[in-house]
């Protein structure tokens, strides 16, 4: 059951991801991206990582894509005429992805990976927090410094010239 659900959501995620690049209308593309993120979060839940699944919805769907759509609405983005180069790259991707998927299935042995034993609290909030603030604390702190710098940068950039002086 869980395996079938997994394959269902996985193929849906790929289909939605395809639609993001194949659909001309930017707002429809954005919506397909939401669909794709939803399926990915379902995959996280099925792979015993509910915390990551929820965070996927919270950050990507709930925050980032809302801003994407907001900006697209604000600028009133229209359907764009495609250049030949865009057409070529589109259909190139269309062919490349299945080929890549086929080879990854052949080379990587998914069955062996799936059979690995998981510890009891795998994927729980506690274990994720422990690995973030334990073994990966340096990377974690580094990322937070980068984000803080970006935030300060945004505040400075949006200030008007006169206010700065």
């Amino acid at each position: 059951m869980i395996e079938n659900l997994f394959y269902g959501f996985a193929s849906l995620a790929v289909i939605f991801a395809y639609m993001v690049i194949l659909i001309r209308n930017p707002i429809h593309s954005g919506l397909s991206l939401i669909g794709s993120f939803f399926c990915v979060s379902a995959l996280f839940v099925l792979m015993k990582a509910p915390f990551l699944g929820v965070i996927q919805i919270l950050i990507y769907t709930g925050a980032i894509l809302v801003l994407f759509l907001y900006v697209m609405m604000l600028l009133n983005v229209k359907e764009e005429e495609e250049t030949t180069w865009q057409m070529v790259s589109k259909y190139f991707t269309l062919v490349l992805v299945p080929v890549g998927m086929f080879f990854s299935f052949k080379v990587l042995n998914f069955k062996r990976l799936a059979a690995r034993e998981l510890s009891e609290d795998f994927g729980s909030v506690f274990s994720v927090g422990e690995s973030l603030l334990g073994s990966y604390v340096f990377v974690f702190e580094l990322a937070s410094v980068v984000l803080l710098a970006a935030m300060i940068g945004v505040v400075v950039l949006t200030k008007r010239k006169e206010e700065l002086d």
Binding site: I27, L31, I34, P50, F51, V54, I55, I57, L58, T61, G62, V66, L69, Y70, M73, S124, V125
Partner: peptide, 25 residues
């Protein structure tokens, strides 16, 4: 009963903003 219940409820209910954006647009 899930152990990330609070996060789930908050993140899902925040998705309602899409309806506002889409309806307006």
């Amino acid at each position: 009963n899930i152990d990330v219940g609070v996060l789930f409820t908050i993140s899902v209910s925040s998705l309602g903003v899409f309806s506002i954006i889409l309806a307006g647009w």
